[in-house]
Design a protein around this nucleic acid. Structure first.
Lengths: 119, 119
DNA sequence: CGTATCCATTGACAACAATCGAATCAATCG
DNA sequence: CGATTGATTCGATTGTTGTCAATGGATACG
């Protein structure tokens, strides 16, 4: 779960040559980083982070209309945040009758958590 | 490590009253969320995430001039990203002569990792 | 001293994000 | 039909990013 970049040798001379030559960059890591950064970005807003928190505690039990009064934002703004979370693959929703119930998608945070992880 | 929001009772009547009344919001959680969101936000860019990755593997061993060729960005952009990471409290740097060596601050990712964590 | 090297900072710019109000719309229930 | 939930859209505003080129400060070499 690491990116494993090659780093140049530590023997260097201040003036002289241009210091370091370019290093080959693993493709896999770049995509992995892009995925994780996308998730992190979606969590990079206090409201969205709290939304995820509530949804983890109350998976499938809270409808959007209950989420709304928890924050001082308009309904359209809340919907907007939920969409961002959906687009990042972090949450998904299920309609039951009139209501929409959101839940955190299993494993959605796994990769990032693992990378951040105990390590 | 959870936000512990109160959620309204699940017994609801579709038409009738306005669905849900506002719920008290814990102050502590809001600050905690703000801190974690700040860290997540800083990691919400592929380049910064990879920077942190490299620095974790090579703490105090890579200077900025070695970081630069790993990405296709200008020197000033790299400096800008490093500053963001510094401002988020994720990394810190130490100058040695001409070079600046960056490292991930111990425990900087702990809170977020714990929250995301195996839970 | 002069000059090259590393890196931070500044200023500029375009692109994006967060928010709102208001409106609209589809689906659903009574 | 009429009310409700919630998604979407629109327009507007305001603030934040990512990026670069250029400049500047510190340090080291000769």
């Amino acid at each position: 779960m690491n990116v494993d970049l090659e780093t140049a040798p530590k023997t260097k001379r201040p003036p002289g040559e241009p210091c370091c030559e370019p290093v080959a960059y693993p493709e896999v890591a770049r995509e992995e980083a892009a995925r994780m950064a996308e998730v992190a970005k979606a969590l990079g807003d206090p409201i969205r982070l709290q939304l995820v928190d509530v949804l983890r505690e109350n998976a499938g039990k809270v409808c959007v209309c209950e989420l709304l009064p928890l924050f001082e934002i308009s309904q359209s703004t809340l919907s907007h945040h939920l969409r961002k979370l959906r687009e990042a693959g972090i949450v998904d929703s299920e309609r039951k009758g009139l209501w929409a119930f959101y839940y955190v998608r299993p494993g959605a945070l796994e990769e990032l958590a693992g990378w951040l992880g105990p390590a």
